[in-house]
Structure formats: structure tokens, C-alpha cells
């Protein structure tokens, strides 16, 4: 029987935490301020997600390495500085297989490798590679708490 670890990691809004698996990478940032994320749904609706300063934004890339990190940082920049909207694709949309990264936000995020990328508007579930699947991430004051087992991670400056 494996034991799930729960780790608290300090993270300020100018930092990004990367969790790495063999086929994917996850980037986590704190919002640091009240902000909004706009979601366009297949039902032609717009949902506005209102985030507080302690909430987190997670970007999951379906490849690892430096290229994935640059993509994650670019997506963080678009969301935080440009208020770029997120688009939810209808199920079985042919473009789902082209997605290189997906986004979630809020005070709790569960990573799951068993969902179809880009099809779910629920912001507490995020598609991720198998090694990171099952992790539960909670926003806490001045950082995050992650429950589950992961090995490779590193912190970097957000502003690069």
C-alpha cells in the first residue's frame, strides 16, 4: 500500500513551480491579486471565474522539457497580463488532439490523466500526464499544498 504525501510549498506570485513527469509538465502560480478568467463554453456562453489573491492557476503541458516550460510561462502571461479567454471544446472535437496544454484555476485542482483534454469547464479538474495524475493541489496562504506523490519539481521566477 502506498502512502500519499502531503507537502506544503511556499510560493509567491512572482514564482512558478514546475512539476515534471516523463510525458508532461505542470506549471503552478499564485494569482497574487483579485483577477478574472474568462471561459467560453460550447453552449456559446461566457463564464467569468473570479479568483482571489491566494488562488492558483495551473497549466498542464503534454510534453516535458524546456519547450514545455516556455509554453507554460507564455500561457501564464496571457492569462495574467492579457486576460486572454479560455475556450472549452465540445466533446470529440477534432482539435482536442492538437492541444498542447490546458488550464485550470481556483483554490483546489485535481490532476487526472483520464479526461479528454480541453473538454471540461470544471476548473477543479485538469488533464495531466500519468505520473502527475491523482495529485490534489490546494491553494493556501503564501503557497500551495500538494497531496500525492511526485518526484521531479523545481521553482523558477515567473518573469523571464
Amino acid at each position: 500500500m502506498s502512502v500519499r504525501e502531503r507537502r506544503r510549498i511556499e510560493l509567491n506570485p512572482n514564482q512558478v513551480l514546475f512539476l515534471t513527469g516523463s510525458s508532461g509538465k505542470l506549471g503552478l502560480v499564485k494569482t497574487g491579486q483579485d483577477m478574472q478568467i474568462f471561459i467560453g463554453t460550447p453552449e456559446k456562453e461566457e463564464i467569468v471565474v473570479f479568483l482571489g489573491k491566494d488562488d492558483i492557476i495551473a497549466v498542464s503541458a503534454f510534453e516535458s522539457g524546456k519547450k514545455a516550460e516556455k509554453g507554460i510561462l507564455a500561457m501564464m502571461y496571457l492569462l495574467k497580463e492579457f486576460s486572454a479567454p479560455i475556450i472549452v471544446l465540445p466533446e470529440n472535437h477534432p482539435t482536442s488532439k492538437r492541444l498542447k496544454m490546458v488550464v485550470a484555476c481556483g483554490d483546489h485542482i485535481n490532476l487526472d490523466c483520464d479526461v479528454q483534454a480541453g473538454t471540461h469547464p470544471e476548473q477543479d479538474i485538469l488533464c495531466a500526464c500519468s505520473e502527475l495524475s491523482g495529485l490534489d493541489i490546494d491553494a493556501v496562504e503564501d503557497g500551495i499544498e500538494i497531496e500525492g506523490n511526485f518526484e521531479q519539481f523545481r521553482m523558477d521566477k515567473l518573469d523571464q
Binding site: D34, Q36, F38, E45, E46, I47, V48, V49, F50, L51, G52, G106
Partner: peptide, 12 residues
């Protein structure tokens, strides 16, 4: 008029 979810709701 807008649809929202979250803690501190303001007009977008």
C-alpha cells in the same frame, strides 16, 4: 449581465 463563479464578484 454575466455568469460568474468565485469569491469577489465584480462586473467584468
Amino acid at each position: 449581465i454575466f455568469q460568474g463563479i468565485g469569491k469577489r464578484v465584480v462586473c467584468p
